[in-house]
Simulated assay, not measured.
Amino acid sequence: MLKYIDVLKFVNHGNPVARQRVVKTPEEWRAVLSPEVYEVTRLKGTERAYSAAMCSSFEPGLYACACCGTLLFDGREKFDSGTGWPSFTQPIEPGAIAYENDRSYGMRRIEALCSTCDAHLGHVFPDGPPPSGLRYCMNALSLNKIETPFEKAVLGGGCFWCTEAIFKELKGVETVESGFSGGAIANPTYREVCSGRTGHAEVVQVTFNPAEITYEDLLRIHLSTHNPTTPNQQGADVGTQYRSIILVSNNDQRRSAEKVLAEMQAIFDRPIVTEIKQLEAFYLAESEHQDFYLKHPEEGYCQAVIDPKLAKFRMLFATSRK
């Protein structure tokens, strides 16, 4: 979870790296944007307070940059700030937003921009609700709402190369991303997490369609394809970064996790030690860790560790595979 100190660090020491960049000339932007959207996003304008219905809309969905389509916010982080502009407590991921000092109009503020295309979105303030204390005050014209059937699950069960390979084969799973969560520092590197001093676990973020596979079934498969009874260890991988963990984003997910853990305990002779923790932030791992098994099936670790896990998974959950 980002807090204001993290935003200040980005401003003073450099923004998180964007997944991609979109660069166009002013003329190219004018050709694809309405005059109102161009004024706000490319010329740093501000819409009138309470001028958009988006301010009072709190239905589930995702919010994307009106210029380039990059996903920026999850509707679950939206709240009524009473300011007249759509407000969020967190971006959808730390690298989605870039930050710059803004001293216009005799004020000192921190500007929020789309990290992909540098579109002006609004400003971020340290007066939001807990636990982050952040208020991303956005122009509605800078955002497009996207209705989506997908939900996300963040799970850890040892080396994320193994976990990613398993979940990629499941029906109803749209994407699987390897990363880090559950620790104390923002934007950790793989090397830092491997030191065991960040508190982060190696995890995967699974985007899935609950109409095709339920969250509880994802958890059952997760607990069946690693050993949830060994504290801070999976086979030869030892350390807190390899702990069994379920990061929940809301109370419904927490209740489901508690239910499934109690249900699955009957299968194991030893107590399940899987941690259930509130998701504060998911940090994407470096590109070389994404799709690792698909890229390197001949690697020794893949053949010795991942291949046997996949064979067990394919036998137990044959009907759940794509």
Rank of each mutant, 00 (worst) to 15 (best):
S87C: 11
I97K: 00
C137K: 01
E77Y: 12
L170S: 01
C137A: 00
V124M: 06
E59P: 01
D127W: 03
C114N: 08
L141M: 10
C137M: 02
Q90T: 08
A66W: 13
T89N: 15
E174R: 14
C162W: 07
G158N: 03
T116N: 05
R103K: 11
P130Y: 09
G128Y: 05
I110L: 06
P94W: 04
I146Y: 03
P149D: 09
T148F: 01
N139L: 09
P149T: 08
L113F: 11
C117M: 10
G82P: 11
S104E: 14
I97D: 00
F73N: 10
S132H: 08
C114E: 10
S142R: 00
L72E: 05
D118F: 02
A96V: 04
G84S: 14
I146E: 11
K152P: 01
E164D: 15
S115T: 09
F150W: 13
D118L: 03
R108A: 12
C65R: 06
A165D: 01
R108Q: 14
L141F: 07
E100L: 11
D74L: 07
G157E: 13
N101F: 03
T116L: 06
F150H: 15
C114Q: 10
P91N: 08
P126F: 09
E93L: 09
D127M: 06
C137W: 05
A64Q: 09
R135Y: 05
A64E: 12
I146R: 01
K171G: 12
T89F: 13
